[in-house]
Simulated scan of single mutants.
Amino acid sequence: MASKEMVLHLVGQGRGYQEIGAELGIPAGQAYLVGTGLPADGGGTVTRAQRQRPGVLPSRSQALVNPREVNPTSSPRVHHWMRERARADGLARPGR
């Protein structure tokens, strides 16, 4: 079980929350919560006193729980599917 002391000790060694979470077998956002007492998702208002706690990140703690979204603009698999559907539909062929 991860403790506040364990997390803050690792933070004091210069480790990031991703690495700390992996070492302790918990998600990075949970390691942040255990170490700081603050949710990593940015929920709620953080007071000035809370921002002074050991281990609190100055910004971007939400990235610990919400990885970046990936929105590809195209997919070869979808393009292949569309070509096959068009070939199968006689009315969709050019010249008809």
Rank of each mutant, 00 (worst) to 15 (best):
L38W: 06
P39F: 09
P39Q: 12
A40V: 03
A40Y: 01
A40P: 04
D41I: 01
D41K: 00
G42Y: 02
G42V: 04
G42K: 03
G44M: 07
G44N: 05
T45V: 14
T45L: 13
T45A: 12
V46G: 02
R48Q: 10
R48F: 06
A49C: 02
Q50R: 11
Q50V: 10
R51T: 05
R51L: 10
Q52C: 03
Q52K: 15
R53I: 06
R53Y: 15
R53V: 06
R53M: 11
P54G: 03
P54E: 15
P54F: 04
G55H: 07
G55M: 07
G55W: 08
L57Y: 09
P58L: 09
P58R: 14
P58W: 08
S59L: 08
S59E: 10
R60N: 15
S61I: 00
Q62R: 08
A63T: 07
A63F: 03
A63R: 13
L64Q: 01
L64H: 00
L64A: 02
L64V: 01
L64K: 00
N66Y: 01
N66S: 05
N66T: 01
P67T: 03
P67M: 02
P67C: 02
R68G: 03
E69F: 00
V70G: 01
T73P: 04
T73Q: 12
T73L: 14
S74C: 10
S75I: 02
S75K: 06
S75Y: 05
P76T: 07
R77C: 02
R77P: 00
V78Q: 13
V78S: 11
V78Y: 12
V78G: 02
H79M: 12
H80V: 08
H80C: 05
H80M: 09
W81G: 06
M82T: 12
M82S: 12
R83A: 14
R83F: 07
E84C: 12
E84P: 03
E84I: 03
E84A: 15
R85V: 14
R85T: 10
A86Q: 13
A86G: 02
R87M: 13
R87H: 12
R87W: 10
R87Q: 13
R87L: 14
R87F: 09
A88C: 02
A88W: 01
A88K: 10
